[in-house]
């Protein structure tokens, strides 16, 4: 039963009559990495937020290690045990850290909440986590505004790893970074997954990232899964026209925006007729 680290079944959510997520199902093996790909309005961010409990699904189930977490958390014990199952890294490094809390404090806070540690043990663990993401004592004393975007995202990563989650939800975690910095963070993420066996759900709009970060991919369009499978297969032999459109849309030599525009219109008419 507990073969999967994360199992999602038939997840559904609407906001004021507008369906955002419509019957999304997937599963993630322990230490696996799944990319959830889609454009704005595809429901990818809503899905991520439901996984960590920031939104309640209208229907469907979310299980981590076999334990259900679809209903609202009742009581401190449930809240804490859920926090040790899933953690999240957000997109905007400039808004995801409390501007008044130093880097060291930021990483110590979850340690204090979740583990009975002496202050010395806690400091040691904090330094270990910061070192893991490539930050040293100089950064530890700083407030977030002294750090660059990449450094802040490292802090957010260390903070998320502090509760030792089984799965990390990365919600466009590198989208706001410069390309040269994004690659550093991707490298770091791969290294952490190899060493710790944490699983990733990589929410992104950037198909070019997928093959480098995920074993499997899930393509969302207007709240529904239109295609899923191993990254290498989906990227080389996409079956759904929307996946093909997404692939063609990535700029590269020989890119033909006019054709993509035509394909997109064709797809829009098609989906209008079918619904």
């Amino acid at each position: 039963m507990t073969e999967y680290a994360l199992e999602v079944e038939n997840l559904r959510k609407s906001f004021g009559g507008q369906v955002a997520v419509d019957g999304v199902s997937f599963s993630l093996p322990p230490g696996g990495s799944l990319a959830v790909v889609g454009e704005s309005g595809s429901g990818k961010t809503t899905t991520a937020r439901m996984l960590v409990g920031l939104e309640r699904p209208d229907a469907g189930r979310i299980r981590v290690g076999g334990r259900d977490r679809s209903a609202a958390a009742r009581g401190r014990a449930t809240r804490l045990s859920r926090a040790r199952e899933l953690q999240m890294v957000f997109q905007d490094p400039y808004l995801s850290l409390d501007p008044r809390v130093s880097v060291a404090q930021c990483v110590e806070e979850p340690l204090r909440l979740h583990f009975a540690m002496s202050p010395r043990e806690r400091r040691a663990r904090r330094d270990e986590l910061l070192a893991r993401v490539g930050l040293g004592g100089r950064e530890a004393d700083a407030l977030p505004r002294r750090l660059s975007g990449g450094q802040r995202q490292r802090v957010a990563l260390a903070r998320a790893l502090a509760t030792e989650p089984k799965v990390l939800i990365l919600d466009e975690a590198t989208a706001a970074l410069d390309v040269s910095i994004q690659a550093q963070i991707l490298d770091l993420l791969a290294e952490i997954r190899r060493e710790s066996g944490v699983g990733y759900v990589f929410v992104t709009h950037n198909l070019a990232l997928v093959r480098h970060v995920a074993d499997d991919v899930l393509v969302l369009h207007q709240g529904r899964v239109v295609e899923s499978g191993p990254s290498s297969r989906v990227l080389t032999a996409p079956e759904h026209p929307y996946t093909r459109l997404l692939l063609h849309s990535v700029p590269r030599p020989g890119w033909d925006p006019a054709r993509i525009a035509a394909d997109r219109r064709a797809l829009a008419t098609e989906s209008k007729e079918s619904s």
Binding site: E39, L207, L245, H248, S249, P251, P257, I260, A261, R264
Partner: peptide, 9 residues
Amino acid sequence: VTTQAEVIA
């Protein structure tokens, strides 16, 4: 990305 392609076109 798909909108980008259209605007660029």
